[in-house]
């Protein structure tokens, strides 16, 4: 458990309309079992103790599931480990003396609010545009009334595992939200419960995605490579198929 000394280059920005820039901080004697966010906690406590403002960053569950943490570490959303959120990244993956660059998600539809915090409400609006089944409380049939094959259910789960963090957008040079949108569309298109609204759903969600200013898919697969839940780009293919057949039907 060797101690670790790092140089941090962190993006500081006071507000959405303020100019931002990198500031450099030295941090020493870190325990390698710490998580990356715990390392930032130490930095922030040092900053508070010396009368400075701490670095603002989004975080909450610290178990890799809420999707709140969002930082680009050394150029990669959520850092160097595959299938891992920032909060699940531990300092044992860094070396003594490293310089670590920490930035917010960079995408026009996700404006920086402060330091490392961005506005991800466009994702909420994409879901509001159709990412649901219109079933009022109390009107559901028995849970076993419609059998669903295990393979289909598992496939739907793989899509539903998306945590809505936005790493896919941050990883994409076009800032495309295709992977996020496709995951929800695919989950519901796979399941019998999603069939009734299948056409309106894909049309509504894709339209909203475009209106929010997300770019086109680059077909490079950077989103899947950086997705902490390893959501497959195969769902983008499925979304495209859904979209085109909806337009034919519509």
């Amino acid at each position: 458990m060797a101690d670790l000394n790092l140089t941090l280059k962190i993006w500081r920005q006071d507000g959405p309309t303020e100019p931002g820039g990198f500031k450099t901080y030295d941090i020493s004697d870190l325990n390698t079992h710490m998580s990356f966010l715990e390392m930032l906690d130490v930095l922030n406590e040092n900053l508070v103790n010396s009368g400075d403002e701490p670095v603002a960053f989004d975080h909450d569950c610290r178990e890799g599931i809420c999707g709140m943490c969002s930082m680009v570490i050394n150029g990669r959303p959520h850092g160097p480990l595959e299938g891992t959120t920032t909060c699940q990244l531990h300092m044992r993956h860094f070396n003594d003396g490293d310089t670590v660059t920490i930035e917010p998600w960079r995408a026009k539809p996700f404006p920086v609010l402060k330091d490392l915090i961005v506005d991800r409400t466009p994702f909420d609006r994409i879901i509001q545009a159709g990412g649901f089944v219109s079933v009022n409380t109390g009107s559901a049939p028995d849970g076993n009334a419609i059998p669903i094959g295990k393979d289909i259910s598992d496939d739907a789960f793989d899509a539903a595992a998306c945590i809505g963090c936005g790493a896919c957008v941050a990883a994409c040079k076009n800032a495309s939200a295709n992977l996020f949108t496709a995951a929800k569309i695919s989950q519901l298109a796979l399941l019998p419960q999603g069939q009734t609204e299948r056409v309106e759903r894909v049309i509504g969600m894709v339209k909203q995605m475009d209106e929010e200013g997300f770019g086109h898919c680059t077909n490079t697969g950077a989103c899947e490579a950086e997705c902490p839940k390893e959501i497959s780009v195969d769902y983008i293919r499925k979304m495209n198929w859904e979209f085109h057949s909806a337009n034919v039907k519509g």
């Binding site: 649901f132 089944v133 079933v135 409380t137 109390g138 009107s139 559901a140 049939p141 028995d142 849970g143 076993n144 419609i146 059998p147 669903i148 094959g149 295990k150 259910s153 598992d154 739907a156 789960f157 539903a160 989950q187 519901l188 399941l191 419960q193 999603g194």
Partner: peptide, 20 residues
Amino acid sequence: SIIDQCVAQGVPFAREYGGT
């Protein structure tokens, strides 16, 4: 009723091979 409601919303619960 909770299970019924969640299934109807498209919650992908674990299933048996027979679909239940």
